[in-house]
Design a protein around this nucleic acid. Structure first.
Lengths: 156, 156
DNA sequence: AGTAGATAGTATTGCGAAAAGACGATCTGG
DNA sequence: CCAGATCGTCTTTTCGCAATACTATCTACT
């Protein structure tokens, strides 16, 4: 038994608050703040997703995704492209400007994230990230490539 | 550099969603859901806190705390008691019924929390909890006592 | 003492985000 | 070819939450 302390939720909330407090300001001008940034990140890695796929992945309603994509398009960060295989869907692809934005921001965001884990020493932070990713059901560190993908794409 | 993957927020959100999806139903009838439950938990451990202290700890506005406490009082789970040292404050104390409620629920909540960490094996879950608590700035495992405190108090 | 400023709790108001429902377009299975 | 499901969009409604204001009380400074 021991550690099943039943207050995981409270701690989770506290850390999430630290996250939004520290990361939020870095993403101030960004369309929908952290949510918009996460969306763009999700667009970059992997195949161009449909809006429904994005909504499912980010856990938001598909009716919201419409407006979110609207604003990302308006900011010139992504484009809607028809999917030839299914004309109901719109594939969301990042523009050059979108890649550039991530390239600029991901460093600052990573920095703020580190600060949000301030009470953990570096080794613990890395371990925490690893466990968190696994808990989120993402591949071991499959997400680590987001920044790499961007910088690589920018060079091309 | 290595692991500073800048998507801690997304993973955090995913895990939090799993948490609310699994724990939420268990706390369905509870006054303000998980938030009310966390509040009551906070009330039980440590000295009877003021409403402002609770609000600060849980990261919610003090204007909300009024209604939250109102509903907990109405449900007979806590009481407002004047603080003799500061007559502006109301000390929030748990009633017998409140203790009983936690005693009944904390097991179910802990179970649901474990499920929310489903992709982690038991050893990883314990480690994750430990790191999360430290990241949240709570003492090493100071929170582990909540359940223990309750069961102890119920025996008295 | 006495006054000014801060803090605790409460009541009221207004706003903005998000879900619900409906709709046309399109795909899939029988 | 038809029924049902899915995708994206639009409209409407709901509701949580913060901002504001007010009273009572405490604290600090002079």
């Amino acid at each position: 038994m021991s550690d099943a302390t039943a207050d995981l939720g409270a701690a989770l909330g506290t850390v999430l608050r630290a996250y939004t407090d520290l990361v939020g300001p870095k993403l101030d001008g960004f369309p929908h703040g952290a949510r918009g940034y996460h969306t763009l990140t999700e667009v970059v890695e992997g195949r161009p997703p449909s809006q429904a796929a994005l909504a499912a992945k980010l856990g938001i309603d598909r009716t919201m995704m419409t407006y979110l994509i609207d604003d990302l398009v308006e900011a010139g960060l992504v484009e809607r492209q028809p999917n030839p295989h299914d004309r109901r869907q719109r594939q969301i692809v990042a523009t050059a400007r979108g890649l550039e934005a991530i390239g600029t921001l991901c460093g600052q965001v990573a920095e703020a994230e580190e600060a949000a884990l301030g009470t953990l020493d570096p080794a613990e932070r890395a371990l925490f990230r690893r466990l968190l990713h696994k808990a989120a059901g993402n591949g071991p560190l499959h997400t680590a490539e987001a920044c790499a993908i961007v910088t690589e794409a920018l060079e091309a």
